[in-house]
């Protein structure tokens, strides 16, 4: 069997394993920053998936997919980080560590800050 093809196959399995673990973290949480880091990790893994597929299929179009995804993924992470920051300012509590606001508490925090 071709060495390159074997290497690509092993890489595909490892990347998908990484996506599965990141997805588990996305579901389990427990705080919002954990989920954002998991989403960012999934984006990076899918970028590598595109790169692997470009080698496998010898189609350069997938390289462009990887570039666009990497650039837009950065923007998504920045926007979500700003969302977390704003929530922290409004609620007056940290978004991670002891006493952190959980995902469902947003409405309650909003009420206390307004009234």
């Amino acid at each position: 069997m071709d060495l390159l093809a074997t290497a690509i196959e092993i890489s595909f399995v490892l990347v998908m394993l990484g996506v599965a673990f990141a997805f588990a973290r996305l579901i389990l949480g427990p705080t919002l920053p954990d989920r954002i880091v998991a989403l960012d990790m999934m984006t990076v893994l899918i970028v590598s998936f595109c790169g692997l597929y470009a080698i496998l299929s010898e189609d350069t179009a997938f390289i462009d997919v990887a570039i666009v995804l990497a650039l837009v993924g950065f923007l998504a992470t920045v926007a979500l980080a700003r969302f977390v920051e704003r929530r922290r300012v409004r609620s007056g509590r940290p978004t991670y560590g002891p006493g952190a606001i959980s995902a469902g508490e947003d409405a309650k925090a909003e009420e206390t800050s307004n009234g």
């Binding site: 997919v65 666009v68 920045v78």
Partner: peptide
């Protein structure tokens, strides 16, 4: 692959950032 729509989206993303 490419064209006006995806090009415009990428350009807008730059300014959104």
């Amino acid at each position: 692959p490419g064209g006006g729509f995806i090009g415009g989206l990428i350009g807008a993303t730059g300014f959104v950032l």
